[in-house]
Every structure is written in C-alpha cells, then in structure tokens.
Design a protein around this nucleic acid. Structure first.
Length: 462
RNA sequence: GUGGUUAUAGCUCAGUUGGUUAGAGCAUCAGAUUGUGGUUCUGAGGGUCGCCGGUUCGAACCCGGUUAGCCACCCCA
C-alpha cells in the first residue's frame, strides 16, 4: 500500500487548527446573527449548468466537474464515446459530466432564491458558511478547498443594505483584532461610465481587467495593456486621468465628477459612493464607525461580472503579504440567470482560510482558544482513581469539562499530558487525601497548589 | 493552464568532486527518581534518502519521468 495522501490543495485540520478556525467562524456567525441574517446551507454539488458561464471564461475552467456514474456500462459504450468526442471539442458534455462541486456561495444562493421565491418573504437576508472548491493551482493563501462566509440581502435596492454590510465587515475585523484592515469600495456604475466614454459599454471588461492591475504592474504597463486591447490614444488618456485620481474620499469624488458626471451612470455611481462613505462620518451614531478604514478606490474592479453597483474588497493589513480576504457587491438581477427576474441583491464574503493565515502570522489568536479540558484528575491507583472518577462525574454535571488520566502512570507522564492539551488545572488525590476527603488542586499556569475539601472542589470556579 | 524551486528520522535541518555501516538538535521511550512535570545525566528505538526508471564497478548526490509542498504568472478568497 502506497503512503496515504490527500488531494492537492486540500488539508486536514488537527485539533488546534479546528479550534482556531471555529473561533473565526463563530465570530463571523455571531455578527451575521446580530444583524438579522438567517442561516442557509446548499449541497456540495450543483448541476453543472447552474454554475457554467457564471464566473467568466476563466471561472469555467476552475470548476471541479464530477464524472458521471456508469461510464463503463458496455451497453452505452457507443454513446459515451460520442459524448467524449464532444468534450474534446469543448462542447456540451452532459453525457460525461452533469454535476460539479460548487465554486462559490452566491450562485447557489441565487439558484435557491429562484427556486423558492414564492415562499420567501423579502427582503431575505441569509448567511451561509460552507466549503467551496476551485481547480486552481495552490499557492500562498490559495487552496482548492476553502470556506466562504457569505451574507447577502435580496429583494431590496436600499443603499442601507450596503451601509449595514460595511458595518458587519468592521465589526468582524474589529472583534478579530484586525482593526487595521482596509475596506475598498467602488461602483460598477462609475466603471461603466468610464467604459461608455472610452469606446462603449462593451469595453468595460477590457478596461476593468487592465486597471485592476494598477498597483501590481504600474501605470505604464496598464496603458500598454489597454493599447493591446485595442483602445485608442484619446481613450487611454482619459483612463490615465481617471487612474491619477487620488486623495481622500471627498477629493476622489470631487475629481470623478468633472470626468464622468455628465454620464448618467457615472452620476449615479458617484452619488452612491458619496452616500455610502458619508454614512460613517458621524461619530456618535452608536453604530460602528469604520470611516477611517473605508477607502474609495476607483481602480477596484473585481472579476465577477454579475456585479452592477457598489463593489467591496477587503485587504489584509499592509504589514502582511496577503491578497484580498473578503469581497462582495451589488447585483441587480442575479436570479434572472435562473428565470426569475427583478430580484436585486447585495452581498459580502469572508475568506476564512486567508483570515486564518493572517491571524496566525500576526499572532492574533487569543491564548484561550486552545482550552478544551479544564481539569485533569491524576490517576494514582485503583481506589484513588475510582474516588476521583466520582468527583469528576459531579463536576461534569456542573458543566466543568474534565478528564481522568487513563492509567496509573508516572507523574511525569500525567503532567506532560496536561501540558500538551493545555489543561489549566490538575487534581491530585492520593491515599492521604482520599482518607481526609480532600484533594490537591494545582494551577499549572501559575504553579500554585492548594488543598481543598472535596466539597470545596465541587464548588470551585475553573 | 504556464514557469521557477524544494523533497533525507515524528519535527527542523546537515550530508564534501559520486566511495564502505547516512548524521545532529528537538520530540518519543526506558532508567537515575516508590506521590509533584518542565532542569540535569545515561541509554534506546526510529530512515527502501518522495516515488519510478536510467548512467556508473558504486547514487541521498548525476540524468529523465512522476507525485506532492512552496513561490510567481493568469485569475482569485
């Protein structure tokens, strides 16, 4: 038997890692609940045609497809060979594969809303915490199986939703100790206006793909790329002006207006950005005030082309080298893809695995995430352990997490077990203590030891 | 999907131009220590050098392939 292994880009999570991940997930879940979102889960796999074509050309390639069963059925051999020929030509492949692992949580959610819109009361606010899969090559901060935590509101056009989602981001990252995260916002309407002015609405993808790379490749390379994508010198010089816009949020908006304000879409986009950023400038509203962490970034584009309004992207603090740890945006008509038009929505996503890596690197996990067992009873022999076992049972009834060491081993070994499991207290009961109905309680963090009566132990606050 | 790089004990890593029986630290186990660990000392176990093939009298080392990790590109959380 060959050495066992797991598929590329997947991971096992040991006890310590699960505890830390749970800490992150619980923090996010608690904030979602705090804002009135309700849980939803969807299957690991979807029908392939639910997913195909929703994530752009690149996205389609990254969908994990599931092979149909029964391909080795001799009776169907001819048909299957013909189907496989189609696959080789990149055509319809339902004879070979018709299911796939889900690629994100937003499209399955849209599919769910489209299927159940008759039963849902709108606006419907749902959160979803589940793994997704991408057939990407693994590297830093990139896995083939990873968790997303999404919160979406559908059935409402109000900008108040965007405001609340910004508050959620702020609340979560503050609770996680990542107070110096950066939340960048932009509007697809502004980008659409830019495209309309520079060669037409259908150029929006060419333009956004190029300008999104600004901070990575620099302005000259961006101009180069725009040129190879067929934009004229005049158009590029408008985009150059657009890219040169910097400053505070107010300054950026003031510079955008003369450039795009004549365009209806541009005007709307600018007004929405203004309203959203302005919602957090009043210090005594009682709500989280992420004003200082909220940056309008005209170069933010985001790849998913179903976004139509405000778009979000969260960047880890600059002191760690990690890309985006969250993102989202408004989409006018996601369920329209599934035959139910007219349901607008807006949502955000947290990338738990990347957040984990960031917290690890910055050592921001609280020390007590590792505490499982609170108290360990030493095993000093048959009679002693039977006595200890009784006390342990009573403590457990009080909700104290405890264990009795499984064997009468050397102290050394029992201490090391406690240390390894990060158990803060041990109880040592020998012949003497048993006879006196007492016990020794040792705090391993401080090294202090006290002798208590059995009754006092049962009342002790661990 | 493209490119670079790495793979030696449970972990972190040495290993000379290719040369006899592949090493260290930590960890584990046993003992010094019969009821108070983390210090110290002594000893022990543990490796088909990622996998497959080739060159060679001889391969951990050179060559080809393959798998996996890491990194970058594309793209993205």
């Amino acid at each position: 038997m060959a050495k066992p292994s797991i598929p590329q880009g997947t991971r096992d999570f040991g006890p310590d890692v699960v505890r830390k991940r749970t800490y992150i997930l619980q923090t996010i879940r608690a904030v979602f609940e705090l804002y009135g979102f309700q849980p939803l889960e969807t299957p690991a796999m979807e029908n392939l045609d639910t997913l195909m074509g929703k994530y752009g050309e690149e996205g389609d390639k990254l969908i994990f497809k599931i092979l149909n069963n029964g391909l080795d059925n001799p009776a169907k051999e001819g048909q299957i060979r013909a189907d496989f020929e189609k696959v080789l030509q990149g055509k319809n492949s339902s004879g070979i594969t018709e299911r796939a692992l889900k690629y994100d949580l937003t499209i399955p959610f849209a599919r769910y809303v489209a299927m159940n819109h008759g039963q849902l009361s709108f606006p419907f606010k749902r959160y979803q915490i589940q793994p997704v899969w991408r057939a990407d090559r693994p590297q830093k901060g990139r896995y083939r199986e990873f968790y997303q935590c999404d919160a979406d509101v559908v059935g409402s056009q109000a900008l108040l939703n965007e405001v609340e989602l910004v508050s959620i981001y702020h609340e979560v990252f503050t609770r996680l100790g990542l107070a110096d995260y950066e939340l960048r916002i932009n509007s697809r309407k502004v980008l659409a206006a830019l495209a309309e002015i520079c060669g037409g609405a259908d150029r929006i993808t060419d333009i956004t793909v190029a300008i999104d790379k600004l901070d990575k490749i620099g302005p000259d390379k961006v101009k180069e790329e725009l040129s190879t994508r067929g934009l004229t010198g005049d158009q590029i010089s408008i985009i150059e002006k657009y890219l040169n816009i910097t400053g505070t949020n107010e300054e950026i908006l003031a510079s955008l207006s003369p450039l795009l304000g004549e365009n209806v879409s541009g005007k709307n986009g600018i007004a929405e950005l203004d309203k959203l950023a302005g919602a957090f400038t009043s210090p005594d509203s009682g709500h989280p005030t992420p004003g200082s962490r909220l940056f309008i970034d005209p170069t933010l584009a985001r790849g998913l082309n179903y976004y139509t309004g405000i778009i979000f992207e969260v960047k880890a603090p600059a002191r760690v080298k990690m890309g985006s740890i969250g993102g989202g945006g408004r989409y006018d008509d996601l369920t329209g893809l599934f035959g139910v038009p007219g349901i607008p929505g807006v949502g955000i996503s947290f990338g738990v695995d990347r957040i984990y890596d960031v917290l690890e690197e910055l050592q921001l996990f609280p020390a007590d995430v590792h505490v499982g067992t609170q108290v360990l009873f030493f095993n000093l022999g048959e009679a002693e352990s039977a006595y200890a076992f009784g006390l342990l049972g009573q403590l457990r009834q009080r909700g104290v997490r405890g264990e009795l060491f499984h064997e009468n081993s050397k102290f050394d070994k029992q201490f090391k077990y406690a240390e390894k499991k990060n158990i803060p207290f041990v109880v040592i009961i020998g012949e003497k203590e048993m006879a006196g109905n007492s016990c020794n309680l040792k705090n391993l963090r401080t090294g202090e030891q006290q002798t208590l009566s059995a009754a006092a132990l049962l009342q002790y606050t661990f």
